[in-house]
């Protein structure tokens, strides 16, 4: 057991999967010779060569499409897109092709690609590097969308994603690449499906995914000091959603807050609220609350940026509201 950073966990998963199966390749901008913007493929170019750790030109739609084509003939490409903003350029091949090929071929073809991309805000990267598009991918049939919150999931879910026969979108986060966690030395896999209760509680359920799980955990600590025992639920998979675990938790706590770094409209929180309405409306003792980003392009100015993006303080205040304390 060693404490490793999120980026090291991703790198280790790449390394093991590439060693295990020569059909696994990595593709993306600057991932080879340069070692990757987030170091997720550091050293792998030297180890596996340029045919398997492929530096691509800045052509997101077509290199993603090339990965998809390769996956249709048995390869297992792990495609890195440097920022989820740039994944918008690859929507045609991801949404129109990868997500639909199995279905429109009547199950006769498949696209087992993995697309990894950071999809959150960092610090003052401004509007074109700060998009959070989880809600867009989770509305696409035929994709899996997962959001590892720490090194254990980052490692174990990437390994599962490589072996899974579906196209998997892994949404990482710029502010998590250096986040550390004790990770077992022996190989393991983490399933792509299933929400996880990462902190047990009885008074309120704080639902998060990706980086917002950490905001929920921080808020839960503060709530504890106020005598409120919060449960924290990490969705882990946005598509498919684990509505059963959400229902069970809400039926236990009777109160719920959803924390998302995405904007609210047609978002993850909206979807979770709808599911709660459908599945356990009568279990609720209070109106649910969504904590989310402001519905604006992310501003450059640090003060404005901070105001646009939810914080642990926002989650804490929101929870107090659900609890009727303010």
């Amino acid at each position: 057991m060693a404490e490793i950073a999120y980026w090291e966990a991703i790198r280790r998963a790449h390394d093991e999967e590439m060693a295990n199966d020569r059909m696994v390749i990595a593709m993306g901008e600057d991932i080879g010779v340069a070692g990757g913007t987030y170091k997720a493929t550091l050293g792998l170019y030297d180890k596996y060569g340029e045919e398997r750790v492929i530096d691509t030109p800045i052509s997101e739609n077509s290199y993603t499409g090339i990965g998809i084509g390769a996956s249709m003939v048995g390869m297992r490409p792990i495609i890195e897109i440097m920022s989820i903003n740039f994944a918008l350029l690859a929507l045609d091949t991801l949404v129109n092709a990868a997500a639909k090929i199995r279905y429109m071929s009547g199950g006769r073809a498949q696209c087992p690609i993995v697309m990894r991309t950071p999809g959150g805000t960092a610090h003052q990267l401004a509007a074109q590097h700060s998009a959070r598009l989880a809600r867009m991918f989770m509305s696409t049939s035929g994709l899996r969308v997962v959001t590892p919150r720490g090194p254990i999931d980052a490692y174990g879910m990437l390994k599962s994603a490589v072996r899974c026969n579906d196209p998997v979108i892994i949404i990482e986060h710029e502010q998590m690449y250096n986040l550390k966690e004790e990770v077992p030395d022996e190989e393991f896999f983490r399933p792509l499906e299933g929400a996880e209760i990462v902190r047990e509680g009885s008074d309120i359920t704080l639902v998060g995914y990706n980086f917002s799980v950490h905001l929920c955990l921080e808020a839960a600590k503060r709530l504890e000091a106020d005598g409120i025992n919060a449960e924290v639920l990490d969705l882990r998979s946005l598509k498919p959603l684990d509505r059963e675990t959400i229902r069970k938790s809400v039926e236990k706590t009777h109160r719920v807050l959803i924390a998302e770094e995405d904007e609210a409209p047609v978002g993850v929180g909206a979807e979770i609220m709808a599911l709660i309405n459908e599945d356990c409306f009568f279990a609720l003792d209070a109106q649910p609350v969504r904590i989310h980003a402001a519905d604006v392009p992310v501003p450059y100015n640090a003060r404005l940026e901070k105001a646009a993006i939810p914080s642990a303080e926002d989650v804490y205040q929101g929870a107090l509201k659900v609890m009727g304390k303010i």
Binding site: M23, G65, I66, G69, V73, M75, A97, I101, A109
Partner: peptide
């Protein structure tokens, strides 16, 4: 490996099929 309605989409898919052959 399919017919596609998105004009131009088969270009990269074809290159990917070729990459698989080469690999």
């Amino acid at each position: 490996m399919g017919g596609y309605a998105l004009v131009g989409q088969p270009f990269p898919l074809a290159a990917g099929l070729a990459m698989g052959c080469k690999h």
